[in-house]
Amino acid sequence: MSRFLIISASMGAGHDAVASELAGRLRTDGHQASCVDLLSLLPHGAGRGLRAAYRTALRRCPWAYQTVYSTLFQDRGRGGGGDGRSTAAAPLAAALAPRLRRVVDRWRPDALVSTFHQAAQATGRLRAAHGGDCPPSTVVVTDFAVHRQWLHPDNSLYLCVTDAAAARVTAATGRPAKVCGPVVPAAFTAGGRPAPGRQPSRWGTELARIGPGRPVVLVSAGAWGVGRGLTATARLLADAGHLPVLLCGNDERLRAHAARLPGVLPLGWIDDLPDLMAASSALVDNAAGQTAVQALAAGVPVVGYRPIPGHGVEGVREMAEAGISEYAAGDTALLGALDRLARPGPGRERRIAAGRAVFVGDAARLVAC
């Protein structure tokens, strides 16, 4: 039995979801696992302020976030360092590393696991400073597009969602990188369409009542309800004969606004998303985050559309280039993709098979090796 300290960050819900799933799998295998929110290690109020600034930038001035992302996250021939270090992350990592060290000294884990890019910088810095006195560290890269904030050559191992991501990591850091696919709860893969003779799920019954005969298309806005033209997208889908289900996360204003649109079903945060996905025909995604990979696991084709800036733009395009989703550059392309993917046919089946094929390993088993 080993002790694992998993370091995440409450920036949205995706990184914490991966951390929680990893912890659950490790405990099931007989290990001890504890999760820590990196933002909670910052001086009083700083973590909340950083999260609020990020959320505000995404919602109100996405151009500003794109500028920050282009400057600090993407390779531009400077700041990343030839050895894979991101000097752009140095100030925050410098503030986090000693605080993380105190947690490590108190909990005495056998290994560290990062599910957030700044956590990867902090663990790398910790190992660089303390060498053999620091536990080995594994970075679980949750992004399809691996930006340089994930990269630090003093981490021990990287786990990635695709071969392309793993190759990028090893080229930049010289560290080993293995491909495991996304980390998704088993409830998503255990779903699927009801077998003949079985009663449909609650969502299957409800959606058939609301929009009989209309293909159900989920429109994702993440935990914060972030995205460009979300209600316009929902209206477009409703006018084209679909039943759009707008996943508003925790944004009650977005849900209230969308509730006034005819033919649109807006939902807040729900705990039975696997069942909803099992009753759905496609997902329109704008971030290439956890909702997108949960859809892949559930056998729901994914179409990237109007991605959020920064990691959203890069991730949506990386998913499409990997052949596991489609990217729609405009309204006509979106409706065309849904015509192929939201209804039965060989195109839909090929896309479902490609999406499920990305799940090639168990990240928890690789972490525990």
Rank of each mutant, 00 (worst) to 15 (best):
residue 136 P to R: 11
residue 138 T to A: 08
residue 139 V to I: 12
residue 140 V to M: 05
residue 140 V to D: 02
residue 141 V to K: 11
residue 142 T to W: 13
residue 142 T to I: 10
residue 147 H to M: 02
residue 147 H to V: 03
residue 147 H to A: 01
residue 150 W to I: 08
residue 150 W to C: 11
residue 151 L to C: 13
residue 152 H to T: 13
residue 152 H to G: 12
residue 152 H to N: 15
residue 153 P to L: 10
residue 153 P to N: 07
residue 155 N to H: 09
residue 157 L to E: 07
residue 158 Y to F: 15
residue 159 L to H: 04
residue 161 V to A: 11
residue 163 D to L: 13
residue 163 D to P: 11
residue 164 A to R: 13
residue 167 A to V: 14
residue 167 A to L: 14
residue 168 R to L: 12
residue 168 R to D: 15
residue 169 V to Q: 06
residue 171 A to W: 09
residue 172 A to I: 05
residue 175 R to E: 11
residue 175 R to H: 07
residue 179 V to T: 15
residue 183 V to G: 11
residue 183 V to H: 11
residue 184 V to K: 08
residue 185 P to N: 14
residue 186 A to M: 04
residue 187 A to Y: 03
residue 188 F to V: 13
residue 189 T to Y: 00
residue 191 G to D: 05
residue 191 G to M: 02
residue 192 G to M: 08
residue 195 A to M: 06
residue 195 A to V: 04
residue 196 P to I: 05
residue 197 G to D: 08
residue 198 R to M: 13
residue 199 Q to G: 03
residue 201 S to A: 12
residue 202 R to I: 05
residue 203 W to M: 07
residue 203 W to V: 03
residue 204 G to Y: 10
residue 207 L to A: 12
residue 207 L to G: 12
residue 208 A to T: 09
residue 208 A to I: 02
residue 210 I to R: 15
residue 210 I to N: 05
residue 211 G to N: 08
residue 212 P to N: 00
residue 212 P to H: 00
residue 212 P to D: 00
residue 213 G to R: 02
residue 218 L to M: 14
residue 218 L to V: 12
residue 218 L to T: 10
residue 219 V to E: 10
residue 221 A to C: 14
residue 221 A to R: 07
residue 222 G to T: 05
residue 222 G to E: 06
residue 223 A to L: 11
residue 223 A to C: 02
residue 226 V to D: 02
residue 226 V to H: 01
residue 226 V to W: 00
residue 227 G to E: 00
residue 230 L to Y: 11
residue 231 T to Q: 12
residue 234 A to V: 01
